[in-house]
Amino acid sequence: MSVLDTIRKYREAGYYKEFDYHWGMTVDLDRCTGCEACVVACQAENNLPIVGESSFAQRREIKWMRIERYWEGEYPNAKLNFIPMFCQQCDEAPCETACPVFATYHNQDGLNTQIYNRCIGTRTCAVYCPYEVRYFNWFTYTWDEPLERQLNPDVSVREKGVMEKCTFCIQRIRQAKDLAKDDDRRKVRDGEVTPACAQSCPTEALVFGDLNDPESRVSKMANDPRGYQVLEEQNTSPSVVYLQKVHGDEEAI
């Protein structure tokens, strides 16, 4: 391929759409009970620090997965809606363009990755992120004895001044791909990899898979007529599809 062709190719926006995978997730809000098992699972899987009471009060908690609560109506007719919020792995992520040092970029799996040891902590990505799912290490957090023994060896711990975020448990994806390679398969099969949050969800509200594969469970779920994307008007084209909660007329039931 000539130089000109290379340049022409790289002049195209979104030229990297043809990926091996396009990891995505669906969140069925009708099934979500707000139990926060996913939050705890994420905490355990990804070595999220426990920031302590005072830092928590300062809104500095680190929860890659969080359950947002929205109240509808007034008491006593109030309804509580939960929206699990985590990195939407946007295809056109505002945060990626913001980083001056390429600490965050779009990888070949359609994931929005964060390279912790490249991050210099300008926090621009967190400002640019409309979903506010980027968390900053305000201090170097430590684990008291013997809690450090439960740290996941596949995931690094982050030092002060580093931005961190959900990457769909990239260590698990890595592992699944390695196993697939061992089996002489080019592709990971649907269901072979599940992030910690989806794995721990008791109601299976979270479904994870490859959106490139039309037969995968997640693709089918994503085509559900209830599907919508959070802050769609921001044109970030997220990889996470939320399935609307169905509010029935309760008196009629």
Partner: peptide, 9 residues
Amino acid sequence: MPTGGRAII
């Protein structure tokens, strides 16, 4: 390093 769905150049 693809970022934000933008062109490399």
